[in-house]
Simulated scan of single mutants.
Amino acid sequence: MAEVLGPGEWLGSELRGDDSWRIRLTEAHRREVLAAVHAAGREVSRESFRLPTLGPVLRRVRDELTHGRGFVLLQGVPVEGLSERQCETVALGLASHVGGIVPQGPEGAPVMHVRDTGADPSHARTKSYQHSGRLGYHSDPTDVVALLCVRPAKSGGLSAVVSSVAVHNEVVRTRPDLAEVLYEPWWHDRRTGDGPDSFYTKPICAARPGGGVSIAYGPDYLRSAQRGATVPPFTRAQEEAMSLLDDLTNDARFTLTMDLRPGDLQFLNNHVTLHSRTAYEDHPEPSRRRHLLRLWLTT
């Protein structure tokens, strides 16, 4: 087992006073986005969503995601006064300048609405975006995940990010025996039902072509996979490895917390970051409840 060096390794404690991961849209950028929204048709793409001055900024976002720290927070995206459909267009248009849109869910939707539907977190088919409970640190199954905040919760719902590369290197340094376990196959749960198709195996850590490491972790979905009839129970080494990962990802040295506000668009590289969310309480009025738009991207 070897440490992975590069800009993808960072500590949250070192970035809390550093705003270099934030990009604030100018008024000219905002006007450009709104003009693109009103000109867009039903099919939104990089070509149809023209951003002459903001486009180069979003290309730099892509570079930072793929070759830098692996996360960026874009702030000042215009969402106030827009309809839900227009907010979808904004999210799709901006994201299309960063990567290709990956369909989500059984219906292959380009945008997923993240809000509390009252779903039971313990239910086999409940997905993490359908409830208001706390989420363990995890990665999504595509190159990049983007989250556009339309409305925050009444309280809670804070987003937190860690460098999974930094966590990986800490495990390699302190427990190389457990680092080896992370490169072995683990059972994961798709939460598509109770049949065998819902369960599959892949390592938590895998070497990337050309160097580096890709970390695919999600303790909630790993633990729910234990309900599978053919899924073996965790070994003692696996339980110890998960405990160590959970301790490190919740360690203040590694975590960087973001309180997403309306117009904040968060981009995360799923290969080199893990993200979480605190539990939240919503407003009683449906029109004021927490609402985020999620997009999956390939780079």
Rank of each mutant, 00 (worst) to 15 (best):
L265N: 01
L256H: 13
L245W: 09
D247S: 15
E240M: 13
T235E: 06
M258Q: 12
R253D: 15
T255F: 00
E281I: 06
A252E: 15
M258V: 14
T249V: 13
L245F: 08
Y280V: 01
D264G: 04
L260A: 07
F267C: 07
L265Y: 12
N269T: 11
F234T: 08
L244S: 04
L260D: 03
T235I: 05
R277C: 07
S287C: 10
L244Y: 10
F254R: 10
H291R: 11
Q238D: 11
T255V: 14
R290H: 05
S287Q: 14
Q238P: 10
E240K: 13
H283P: 00
T278Q: 04
F234P: 03
D251Y: 07
L244C: 06
R261K: 14
H275K: 08
N269D: 14
D246N: 15
A237Q: 13
D264E: 09
N270A: 05
D251L: 07
P286T: 06
D251K: 08
L268E: 04
R236V: 13
R253F: 08
T235H: 05
Q266S: 05
E239M: 12
H291S: 05
E285I: 02
G263L: 03
L248R: 05
R277L: 05
F234D: 14
T235Y: 11
F234A: 12
P262W: 04
H275C: 09
H271N: 11
A241K: 02
H275G: 08
D259W: 00
T235K: 03
R289T: 03
P284R: 02
P284M: 02
E240L: 12
T257G: 02
R253W: 12
A252V: 13
D259L: 01
Y280K: 02
R290T: 01
Y280P: 01
H271Y: 11
D282H: 00
R253T: 13
S243R: 15
Q266L: 14
D247T: 14
R289C: 04
H291Q: 09
P286K: 07
L265C: 09
A237D: 15
E281T: 13
H291A: 02
A279I: 00
L245D: 08
V272L: 13
N269L: 10
R288P: 00
D259K: 01
